[in-house]
Design a protein around this nucleic acid. Structure first.
Lengths: 342, 342
DNA sequence: CACTGCAATGACAACGCTGTCAATCAAATT
DNA sequence: AATTTGATTGACAGCGTTGTCATTGCAGTG
């Protein structure tokens, strides 16, 4: 009977306006609308006005997915961090997003939970969105990740760490230098029986690098690590209290402690306040990161401050920069925030 | 001359393997590869094996962008939070990601910086990726956002707050109830000259809801707010110290203080420790959120604890649930974490 | 006035995938 | 043995956009 064929592909997709709709309404071609929306060159003001009017009338929003398919690259940046429960990563993310959003880019997030296999899976997942770049945490990414990235031909920036080989570019600090600086700081002030407190099985291994450099410098200057505790749990203030209390129970004559991070250090400080241990006279405490709380404690904590937000902005900028193909290594350095605890 | 036509579209796209490549190598049709990759039903083991082998040989990764274009919906969830510098949002994000990643979904992130216009722009941007769902912070989203979401026909979950009208579904707590509970807690313990300390111009306005409910309940029970400080800066421990010190300078006889959050409360506690103010005898302190540090302070802080991580997991689950179209309102409640500060 | 050159616009195809429907095949039934 | 059934597999088209190339129009040139 040759009936009117029903719409063949009646996906019940919400009827978002498309380029075609705008083009029809404006009486121009689709490609012209596309050019106007992308601010492509060689568009007359008249055309632009016509198109913008039609687009506004229809509430048109470009479908980035289609664009990404065509160009094989999206205005998305894949970001993989190991955790969200450590204050430093949200700060980095904040910096990343600040730069990305200013440039019309968005971040797709992946959390690796400090798990290598998981990180590979997460990267694979994120790459399936054809991001224009990738930001990874730390330098010890699996070779499989490097290979995947290569296949996609996109720039990668690894953050936090610059003590090893990067896939492409890296922004961060040298944790080896920081660990040595911690040792110098404590030795210079006359402490001779230094302790170390870490957690979480030294994940990320940046903390291990710091500790090893710390011990090495101590040794170089004729001092050995007096005591140390590396607890299995995730770093937190309560854990810091516990660790210090435990360490002092076996090595009460420890005269200073370098902590893997400020959360632990603040916990240690709290323990001292509770136990009536005079800081820094009985025991000196040195933290790492320079987080906000640490600067407000009753006895202000001395800490090695890093620039997390800036790490994020730098990483994002490197991705965006025209010369993103030239590998870079940016050392953001660290600084001592002197408190009253050392 | 009828020369061999050169590749017509020689975009220098990295030569990722496609379905076609896998299909050719495996000697099957593209659609079969597609079905294997998606775990679609009715695939013989033989076919599956052939395809998987070919896929592995080529290192094939599905191009989600193409799939999303075809199906007009991606395995992406758009998440908008106001900030990253407040510990609570990373925790929520952590929860969201935990559930999403378990279900093969990823989060695209947007940060609104507590700015309404920015939030609209961010949502528009994120929607252009055809996410399968949207998670927003707070209930007071702009009508423009509701309209955009409607046009896309995707589920929305608003988190943190359930004290108002949701676009669709909401998970959180009643800040009005929490504020009243804070008042009851302090009054029940005999305090009669309560103070309040907030910050950041009461953004997010959830803190304003708590304060108003707090004051209302005080009034209902015949007590009026004795003193209050709402500083312009962003909440932080140092700001809490400052605010309390300032408040006590004009109202030294204040006998308890309810803080907008634990960061401020911990700062307040530090001020007391420094100034030799006995907590809770001279001054009682009540926080909000129940963050980790608060439980490790020398004088343990009493706080109203909320379940941030759970808020994230619940929100993500609601989006994924088959009945995501039925609006829901989930009250996760709060609980008092009793310390020694009240 | 014919012609060159450039700016502005458009036609067309393709990006890689999946929904629809048709075709095939083996097992099960009569 | 003929037929039905359900499980597998495949052909085809099109999602909304943009790169490529062709076309148009118009000012400037000799």
């Amino acid at each position: 009977m040759n009936e009117a064929t029903p719409p063949p592909n009646a996906d019940l997709r919400a009827d978002r306006a498309t380029l075609r709709d705008v083009a029809r309404l404006a009486g121009v071609s689709e490609i012209s609308v596309s050019r106007v929306m992308r601010n492509a060159p060689n568009i007359s003001d008249k055309l632009r006005d016509k198109v913008m009017e039609a687009a506004n009338a229809l509430g048109y929003t470009p479908n980035r997915v289609a664009g990404a398919l065509k160009t094989a690259s999206s205005r998305l940046v894949a970001v993989v961090v190991p955790s969200m429960s450590n204050e430093v990563f949200p700060e980095v993310l904040d910096g990343i997003d600040a730069v990305l959003s200013e440039n019309g880019l968005s971040a797709v997030l992946g959390i690796s939970k400090y798990d290598r296999q998981r990180e590979i899976a997460v990267v694979r997942e994120l790459l399936s969105w054809s991001p224009m770049g990738l930001i990874l945490t730390g330098l010890n990414a699996d070779p499989a990740i490097a290979r995947m990235v290569q296949a996609h031909g996109i720039p990668v920036v690894q953050i936090m760490d610059i003590d090893g080989d990067a896939i492409h570019s890296a922004v961060g600090i040298s944790h080896a230098v920081a660990g040595a600086a911690a040792a110098d700081h404590l030795l210079d002030r006359g402490y001779r029986r230094p302790g170390y407190i870490g957690a979480w099985g030294e994940r990320p291994d940046r903390s291990r690098i710091r500790r090893e450099a710390f011990e090495r410098r101590l040794a170089d200057r004729g001092v050995s690590l007096h005591a140390s505790r590396i607890l299995p749990g995730q770093s937190s203030t309560p854990l810091g209290s516990e660790a210090l209390s435990d360490l002092l129970s076996t090595h009460p004559d420890t005269d200073c402690v370098f902590f893997a991070n400020d959360d632990l250090a603040v916990g240690g400080l709290f323990h001292c306040l509770r136990a009536g241990i005079a800081v820094p006279d009985d025991l000196a405490l040195l933290g790492f990161n320079g987080i906000a709380v640490a600067s407000a404690t009753p006895v202000k904590l001395t800490s090695i401050s890093t620039q997390r937000y800036r790490m994020g902005t730098e990483a994002a900028q490197m991705l965006i920069a025209a010369d993103a193909n030239r590998p870079q290594r940016v050392d953001l350095g660290f600084s001592f925030t002197l408190g009253d605890s050392t």
